[in-house]
């Protein structure tokens, strides 16, 4: 990719436009892994192919090409307002693209029947920013909820699973607490336990570091790594926090203005020559990323 001019923050329209115009000439973004598949889903866990999404005149996703490899922790990293939340909703079939397609294990989400879509969503465990616990029931019942909704397990089996998952996230003994009695970090861990109970193949974390101090963020990152090592599968962490990406991102994709600028393994990304990626990952004020 031709390098755009690097300019001071706040005076970057020309450089920004050049970078985006430059990227627009490529079917695949800089550094994208290209793995030939005989059948869709042979290699990729999830794949976005030229995904475009607009709301009115606001184009939020601007041609996303992204493969998410199986068995790794992938971090999708980007500044605020770059389309991260909209991308998540596409990955789990809550939104559908205006153009392009999203494949989950090789199947196009847009072409799934409702029953296929529901089955596909069961492969996902999702940890929302605040844990998204039901406020009127205790931690145990929150974590048991998906099991009672989606399985015919006996209460004894559910108890074993819930206790195991709560123990795994360090909440053994907190079963009877109400969500209002939990700290922000505990809510996230309870949400994590709930995301795991159906043994999902893909676990997605929406800004897991939001509202946490650096120490608790680091502890949560360790927990995510630990649980991934025990369970396997595809973990996707959506964040703007560079420290989180550095700590747990085995594969990192940088999103900006609805487009993936670059993706690659951690070492490659933190040694990137791309001016935007370099600026963003180093937290520098000078570069194509301004205050707009």
């Amino acid at each position: 990719m031709t390098q755009p001019p690097v300019s001071a923050a706040g005076a970057t329209d020309e450089g920004t436009s050049a970078l985006l115009d430059d990227a627009a000439g490529y079917a695949l973004h800089d550094g994208a892994m290209q793995v030939p598949e005989r059948n869709p889903g042979d290699f990729w866990s999830l794949e976005c192919r030229d995904v475009v999404k607009s709301f009115g005149s606001n184009r939020v996703l601007n041609g996303i090409d992204l493969g998410i490899p199986e068995g790794m922790i992938t971090v999708i990293l980007g500044p605020s307002g770059t389309g991260k939340s909209v991308l998540i909703k596409h990955l789990i079939g809550l939104l559908f693209p205006d153009r392009g397609e999203v494949l989950v294990h090789g199947s196009s989400v847009a072409h799934m029947t409702m029953s296929e879509l529901l089955a596909m969503r069961r492969r996902f465990g999702i940890l929302f920013q605040d844990g998204a616990l039901f406020g009127s029931i205790n931690v145990y019942d929150n974590v048991a909820f998906p099991l009672r909704q989606h399985t015919d397990y006996s209460e004894a089996t559910i108890r074993d699973i819930v206790r195991a998952r709560l123990s795994e996230v360090g909440l053994a003994g907190s079963e009877r607490k109400m969500p209002s009695e939990l700290s922000g970090g505990m809510k996230k861990r309870a949400g994590f336990a709930r995301a795991l109970v159906l043994e999902p193949e893909i676990v997605m974390f929406d800004e897991p570091d939001s509202g946490l101090d650096p120490v608790r963020t680091a502890l949560l990152c360790e927990l995510i790594e630990e649980v991934h090592a025990e369970h396997g599968g595809t973990y996707i962490v959506i964040t703007h926090d560079i420290a989180t990406a550095r700590k747990i991102g085995e594969y990192i994709a940088v999103l900006w203005k609805g487009r993936i600028v670059q993706s690659g393994d951690r070492e490659k990304m933190f040694n990137s020559e791309n001016p935007f990626v370099r600026q963003f990952l180093s937290g520098a004020s000078r570069g194509p990323l301004g205050m707009e």
Binding site: F43, W44, E70, G71, E201, H228, A229, E230, H231, G232
Partner: peptide
């Protein structure tokens, strides 16, 4: 992909 799923384990 199926075997990559359990690589972390």
């Amino acid at each position: 992909r199926k075997i990559l799923r359990v690589v972390p384990i």
